[in-house]
């Protein structure tokens, strides 16, 4: 009698345990995303009647230069920081992985700090540092004679993209370095030893042992950075508001503008749906990459 009661409990318990997640998931994630698809087929300002207009929003979106520009900006920002981040990250990680490095704990933390410090706070510090007239960066560059005229860090399209990219680099270098470090720790030290005995220099072993063996981790970091770059919001929102001339407009920033500043909820939803599809494709790609190798 008692045993069967316990048995029954064992059958029911897991469903009770997973139900909070699924209830919340349905209400706050699945239903909204489906609703989003519906809203994207309407003309709606958020409070009045929804006017069904079919694929009108999508047609408009695909001929909207700002939309393509936002994707292009993200791509440019990605190209500006990801190669540097992975290369420098890997060099720093292999230093932290060596036996002879001193102060490992301190350096690891120092590099990781920007990752958990509030992005809003850091963005405002960057605004101060990068101010064209009286920012610290320009005055230091000028006083050591590197530049004659101040660099318009946040005021010209290319420099603004570069500044956003550098801020993203600032935030994510340490995190990626830690991921690469875990990759390195899986490489047997014997390999380096053998290479050393064979007379390979450190630089040679870096290019011929380290890089090939952390390829998978590098790829993983690249995928994470792709997702991260296309979802950028806070950095450009605070540093440049997407400007100048929309040069730092990102898909999420455009979504925010259309919805919560212009109240084009229908149009904004078509951006949201495209963004969702883009993220889904990248995630599926990521899963495939990792299934293949394992």
């Amino acid at each position: 009698m008692k045993a069967s009661k316990l048995n029954k409990q064992m059958l029911v318990a897991p469903y009770i345990y997973i139900s909070p997640y699924f209830i919340l998931f349905f209400v706050f994630s699945l239903y909204p995303i489906l609703y989003s698809i519906y809203i994207s087929l309407t003309d709606w300002n958020g409070s009045g009647e929804k006017l069904f207009i079919g694929f009108e929003n999508y047609i408009q979106l695909f001929s909207d230069n700002d939309f393509w520009l936002s994707l292009w900006n993200s791509t440019l920002i990605f190209l500006m920081y990801v190669p540097i981040m992975l290369f420098v990250g890997l060099i720093l990680a292999s230093m932290l992985n060596s036996n002879w490095m001193v102060g490992k704990g301190f350096f690891r933390m120092a590099l990781f700090v920007p990752n958990f410090v509030s992005v809003v706070a850091v963005s405002f510090v960057f605004i101060l540092l990068l101010n064209t007239q009286d920012g610290l960066v320009n005055s230091v560059l000028r006083s050591i004679g590197l530049i004659d005229n101040p660099i318009p860090w946040l005021e010209s399209p290319w420099w603004a993209r570069f500044s956003v990219a550098m801020m993203v680099l600032y935030r994510w270098l340490g995190y990626n370095m830690l991921l690469l470090l875990t990759g390195l720790q899986n490489i047997s030290k014997d390999l380096y030893e053998a290479a050393y005995v064979d007379g390979a220099t450190k630089i040679k072993s870096f290019f011929f042992i380290t890089i090939p063996l952390v390829k998978k981790m590098l790829l993983f970091c690249t995928v994470l950075s792709t997702i991260g770059t296309f979802s950028l919001f806070t950095e450009p929102f605070i540093l440049t508001q997407g400007g100048p001339l929309n040069s730092t407009l990102t898909p999420v920033l455009m979504l925010y503008r259309e919805s919560f500043q212009n109240f084009n909820f229908g149009y904004a939803s078509s951006i949201a749906v495209c963004f969702f599809i883009l993220m889904m494709v990248i995630s599926l790609l990521q899963m495939r990459i990792f299934d293949d190798k394992e």
Binding site: F28, A272, M280
Partner: peptide, 24 residues
């Protein structure tokens, strides 16, 4: 199936649900 659903839910970015969530 439910576990795959949890896995799949990771693909829904929160940003994409903001508009409907706001009206809800």
């Amino acid at each position: 199936f439910l576990f795959v659903l949890v896995l799949a839910s990771l693909m829904i970015p929160h940003e994409a649900t903001m508009v409907p969530l706001f009206s809800i």
